[in-house]
């Protein structure tokens, strides 16, 4: 929830304007709001099954091209690998990963990260760049240039 604008009910009815059914409405509203939604577990299972079959559209990146044929990797594979690698760094969480390409050839990458409050931003950015280049070298065969932006600072986990 955000703090945008007033909320209308939630509390007891205003006695100046409440009709004879106000009390029953308030209690019924609370009952409806607090009750778990019946059957949600089954719906969630079916939803999970459907979501597993979905994939997002990505772009093919050429890894190798020779007389034997072409080897390509989808950008989603690269993004996912970078997300996992950067997410494993202490105090750092990836918030955006973009692979820039000319045609199907990757040329660079950009990684935006959130760092935990108190984390050394320069050291984190260096670690993110290094880790990302390792991933690019492993997945695409070339350690392309990587731009890193510290996009957010988040509070310490309690």
């Amino acid at each position: 929830m955000s703090d945008l604008g007033p909320r209308s009910v939630g509390g007891p009815p205003d006695p100046r304007t409440a009709g004879p059914g106000a009390d029953a409405l308030t209690r019924a509203t609370r009952a409806l709001r607090e009750a778990p939604e019946p059957g949600w577990g089954d719906v969630a299972d079916r939803l999970r099954t459907r979501l597993r079959t979905l994939s997002r559209p990505g772009r093919p990146l050429t890894v190798r091209e020779d007389e034997a044929g072409v080897v390509q990797v989808d950008t989603r594979v690269v993004v996912d690998a970078v997300r996992r690698a950067v997410g494993a760094l202490p105090g750092t969480r990836p918030v955006a990963v973009v692979v820039a390409a000319e045609g199907t050839r990757a040329v660079s990458a950009r990684v935006d990260v959130a760092i935990r409050f108190g984390t050394d931003a320069h050291a984190s950015a260096d670690a993110v760049r290094e880790r990302t280049r390792e991933v690019l070298r492993t997945v695409l065969g070339v350690a392309h240039p990587v731009d890193v932006t510290v996009a957010d600072v988040v509070p310490e986990t309690r």
């Binding site: 949600w40 999970r48 997300r83 969480r93 955006a96």
Partner: peptide
Amino acid sequence: LALARSAALGDREAFEEIVLRHGPGMLR
């Protein structure tokens, strides 16, 4: 927002957490 960012990068566990948080209300 943290979950949404992770899910946008392909983190399916984060998306499942989003489903668990908001699915019951959406179904209701």
